[in-house]
Design a protein around this nucleic acid. Structure first.
Lengths: 154, 154
DNA sequence: TATTGTTATACTCTATAACTATA
DNA sequence: TATAGTTATAGAGTATAACAATA
């Protein structure tokens, strides 16, 4: 096993850490945290969602979603609505304020991305994204079982 | 501003999240958490360090280091030793058990990296690492001030 | 019986502020 | 006066377990 893979992985982790710090700082200006912003993002992308569905999308427990939605609801960024056909379930919905906050944040997100990537030559960036996508495809297919990952069947 | 930068940044975040989850799972098998493992890693790389120095390396508050060292000390993975020339300071030192745990974990880390990167053609990976390093260099020079990043002077 | 979301409880990471011991 | 580390306190994310309401 080439130990340089380890060095490469270290760099990926360093990038992740620095991006997280940068994002957290950006989000603070919008009164958000990383976890809450990600929930908002999902709602913006896929419309009203049940908490059950959110817990799957965010890969956390339903209990955790309760807390995040509590906070976002207290900030009037989301609303809990009754599910039309399943009275057990709750549909978490963006409020107008939530949608506005999400949009402002997303603009900041794209600007941050631009600062990071604009200085890199476009063709390098294409290769970078292709390799990134290659790796992600593996990881998504392996999902929880990274310890046994060895090729995506079919 | 090209909005595809945002898509790219999303992918980087997805990779970071999946790696973090994978690492956390791996670390759990060694009785470690991400934060504690990182502290151990620093000690392995740079020998005994003061808590002050650790707080700088880990980019967290000194108070935070106290808690991490408390936990690692309770697990007998590190030892607090008096600083030879400054009686205010503490040198955090790896125990034999700590060194052994660190090494086992690092082997797992490299194996994990291999599973991720081995399926990617070597030349793609070279470009990937070069671009990654390019981006990291920017970020390191900009450091906390990502909001004002615009080129590294000399 | 299974599922959705909650209350109860707990652990970890992180931070600020006030304090002690030393420089 | 400044620095290293601690105690005290607090907020956020996460998790499990037990429970309510509904399917």
């Amino acid at each position: 096993m080439d130990p340089r893979y380890g060095t490469l992985l270290e760099k990926v982790f360093e990038l992740a850490g620095r991006l997280n710090d940068g994002m957290a700082e950006e989000l603070e200006g919008h009164g958000l945290t990383t976890a809450r912003a990600e929930l908002l993002w999902r709602l913006g992308a896929d419309g009203p969602l049940t908490q059950r569905r959110l817990s799957e999308d965010l890969r956390c427990t339903p209990r955790n979603v309760t807390g995040l939605v509590d906070a976002l609801e207290a900030a009037a960024l989301v609303r809990r609505e009754v599910h039309p056909t399943d009275r057990r379930a709750i549909l978490v919905t963006l409020t107008d304020a939530g949608r506005a906050t999400l949009q402002r944040w997303q603009e900041g997100f794209v600007a941050l991305a631009g600062q990071m990537f604009a200085p890199v030559p476009a063709e390098d960036l294409q290769g970078f994204e292709a390799t990134l996508e290659h790796i992600l495809t593996q990881l998504r297919s392996a999902d929880g079982s990274m310890g046994a990952a060895s090729g995506q069947d079919a």
